[in-house]
Amino acid sequence: MIARTSPIVRLAVRAVTPIALLIAAFVLFAGHNQPGGGFAAGLLLGAVIVLRTVAGLQQPRHAAVFLAVGGVIVGLEALTPLLWGQPLLDQVVVSRHVPLLGKVKTGSALIFDLGVVAVVVGLVIAVLDGFGAASLVDRGRRPIDDAPVDASVDTDSGRNR
């Protein structure tokens, strides 16, 4: 595959990564009033990880960590209101005036969404890991010089697996 060996693709993915992260963050925060939210942000991050994995920049790892952190955040967010005698998952809305940004309105739903992000990212990583994307990365890491030879061998071996 070209993606793993082409320096152009790898450079492009590297350049896109921070932008995509920024967009993901925007989608997460915007979610309350505009299209977006935790699930979408998680999928965006997942797509970034997919790109970076396919480009051979990153190993899909630590799925369990993401899943565990996400699960715990969501669970705690759900149970915390009970401590104050509120119903399960009850939300608190905070509205503050912040310098530079103006009036910022957010709530405990944001924490809930953060947990959802972590779970979705963990799931994407788990899928990548499960389909053996790690092997792509190993081959992608090889020196770019012998790339043409490598690529032809790759397609065969990948198929025979």
């Binding site: 979610g31 309350h32 009033n33 505009q34 299209p35 977006g36 939210g37 935790g38 699930f39 759900a78 399960l88 998952l89 939300q91 809305v93 509205s95 309105k105 709530g107 739903a109 809930f112 969404d113």
Partner: peptide, 18 residues
């Protein structure tokens, strides 16, 4: 109740958060 204008997301995170 949900403090948001995006009804879909308020449903997801508040109204039907369960």
């Amino acid at each position: 109740d949900g403090g948001g204008n995006n009804v879909v997301n308020v449903i997801l995170t508040d109204t039907r958060a369960l």
